[in-house]
Design a protein around this nucleic acid. Structure first.
Lengths: 119, 119
DNA sequence: GTTGGCCCTGACACCGGCGTCAAGGTTTAC
DNA sequence: GTAAACCTTGACGCCGGTGTCAGGGCCAAC
């Protein structure tokens, strides 16, 4: 399939697909006319990338998952590198949540105080 | 005092102070040589901006607090507009935390699953 | 043969709060 | 008189993923 169809089926844009390619996450055979030519495996790769990006992964962090898929695994998440990224992201998320929670509580307190003083 | 001293006392950079001024958050008298001249009130304003930025406010969101301080209030937070921004930010934070928490839980589940499958 | 829809590459724009450099003027200390 | 440390304005760079435009080629339908 060509890039437009892949983009639509993966719920993204042709621009993004070229971007992923430029960063070595997606490869494309070329038709004789120079158009990119993709298959179903590429669709799975792009879907994997998209779902990870949606979660908040950076593009680089999706690389182990892509390679894991390419290595023939049913899931991109079962390889050691992918799992390591998962763990890292999880602790990153925990830290982020903790910080936000602390800010939230502090803000809540300051809001209450401001309301009290404003009467 | 001049911009370097204000920056140091407020824990920021001269660049930032000029940036705040360019966005109408800070005004400066000028000495005869053209140098910016600040007083203690300006220091309080900058400190207010800094602490809000540190919490995660955008620069625009600090404006009501600055104006509240300039209006002669002891705290920048006691004016209605400031309180409104506080409320808005609080709900924004709550939403953000909820989303992150959902992502976290999902990630945790996927990690467990990946580990199980990777055996 | 021409219109329209797809594709190509390359490159600028965005957002936000700065860092940092350029090219100059001023003041202080020696 | 000169070095050093301050100040001025103006402008580009960053980060990351993507939108969007420019300028062009390919192909199918009419």
């Amino acid at each position: 399939m060509r890039i437009g169809e892949l983009a639509e089926r993966a719920g993204t844009s042709a621009r993004s697909l070229r971007y992923y390619e430029a960063h070595g996450l997606l490869e494309a055979r070329r038709s004789t006319n120079g158009y990119r030519d993709y298959d179903e495996g590429d669709l799975r790769v792009v879907k994997e990338i998209r779902s990870l990006l949606d979660i908040g992964f950076g593009l680089e962090e999706t690389r182990p998952f892509v390679e894991c898929l390419r290595a023939g695994n049913d899931s991109g998440a079962v390889c050691p590198d992918s799992i390591a990224v998962y763990r890292h992201k999880l602790s990153e998320l925990d830290g982020c949540i903790d910080r936000l929670q602390a800010v939230r509580d502090r803000l809540r307190g300051e809001l209450d105080e401001a309301i009290t003083q404003a009467g």
